[in-house]
Design a protein around this nucleic acid. Structure first.
Lengths: 230, 230
DNA sequence: AAGTGGTCTAGACCACATA
DNA sequence: ATGTGGTCTAGACCACTTC
């Protein structure tokens, strides 16, 4: 355990136990320096980490204070579906149902992807049961290699994840009723409540891909644990 | 702009632009020290921040490398509903529909909350239209003050947020079909797809409250922007 | 064996918010 | 005016990993 970790842990414990309540002023840096017999840089690093984690707030001249929790946050990790399904102990299978150049009508429904583009649709299966229906549009100019890919054996998400450099993404979550076509693909009754996850991805301001993934409402647990400051 | 920020920005720009692709080795610390004419501590802090952000990976003896993007993540911020609705420019109103001591049957459906407990149900309105249906269970032993609260004028969430520090929360998201009772409360057709957000909150290992919030599928935009490394 | 990043020190100057 | 945190320096030693 480093000195920094020790300082962090001591303060974190007092906050989580409720001993130091929101608004409580924690010791000044120079006091912690004296208490731990270390340099100020080490104390500063420890407090900086706690501040980044949202556990404390730091104010010049005033000191550092236990933060008031403001909003509940959850980190939603949208893993690669093959891995997600494999982690559940199921066999993964991808079934391509459509792959074609995007028409003007396709792109009219998109915001931000210009021709040429590729439309890919398919169903992710776990143990041969439909798990998620996916429709994706890929910008060819941004990802030229995609034009030569069939996406027959592996879903485009995995392919992209492995080779597309860093991204900025926006996510949306909604509940929708399964359309008849969707219901058929997913093997559920028409009108079943489904979770719809939508994602737009950019690189350097250029949109790379837009994907809509639809899960039967009961088949996808998006549970996230959040500890303020971990 | 601090020296540290300048170093961070320079590296981040090269990564986001695609100039440095995943796996690329970025300059060693001592090279960045020479290039920027600063101390090693400053370079170390900059690279540490980039590593925490997931933009680079650092390996002793080998150097620092542009990370391979692994999963898409989204930070789901679950704001106080009155504020969320106010931010949409709508008038907020809370309508309490039930408040009673929890029965054994109530708690049988809960996991982790022991008697005594309080059950509170109500509907959040925006511009007098139902926006979200809420059912909450509050542990009285953990939050004794709640016993004296009516929750008539303000929802329990706001009351709790203002005075109860929490240290850990778990969230779940699901799509459900509106039950007849739910549909009546929300003013939608029975069977409508709804987003259901569930949250358990603890302090120091003791469960404080459990809440289920149900939104008509089209009425809640949970959109999150995620930039890897910000 | 060599070189990297991880951690730490004992100073320093400064911007800023408060009093 | 004062004292805080923010940033930085120029060293140092060490653990770890790869060579």
């Amino acid at each position: 355990m480093t000195v920094e970790a020790r300082i962090r842990h001591e303060i974190e414990t007092r906050i989580r136990s409720g001993e130091w309540k929101p608004g409580h002023r924690i010791p000044f840096e120079h006091e912690l320096v004296a208490a731990h017999g270390c340099s100020r840089a080490t104390v500063s690093k420890a407090l900086g980490a706690l501040a980044r984690a949202g556990l404390i707030e730091r104010r010049r001249k005033a000191g550092s204070f236990v933060a008031h929790p403001q909003v509940h946050s959850a980190v939603l990790e949208v893993a690669d579906l093959p891995r997600l399904i494999a982690d559940r102990g199921q066999d993964y299978r991808w079934a391509l149902t459509l792959r074609r150049d995007a028409t003007a009508a396709d792109l009219a429904e998109e915001s931000g992807i210009a021709a040429p583009a590729l439309v890919v649709e398919g169903v992710h299966h776990g143990d041969d049961r439909p798990f998620c229906c996916e429709r994706r549009v890929i910008a060819i100019d941004a990802i030229p290699d995609a034009a030569g890919e069939g996406f027959v054996d592996a879903p485009p998400g995995s392919w992209l994840l492995a080779r597309v450099p860093w991204t900025e993404a926006r996510h949306g979550i909604a509940a929708v009723e399964a359309t008849p076509a969707l219901a058929r693909s997913l093997g559920v009754a028409s009108g079943t409540a489904c979770l719809q996850l939508e994602r737009w991805t950019w690189r350097a301001g250029v949109m790379l891909t837009h994907v809509v993934q639809t899960f039967p409402g009961d088949r996808f647990d998006m549970v996230a644990v959040f500890k303020p400051g971990t």
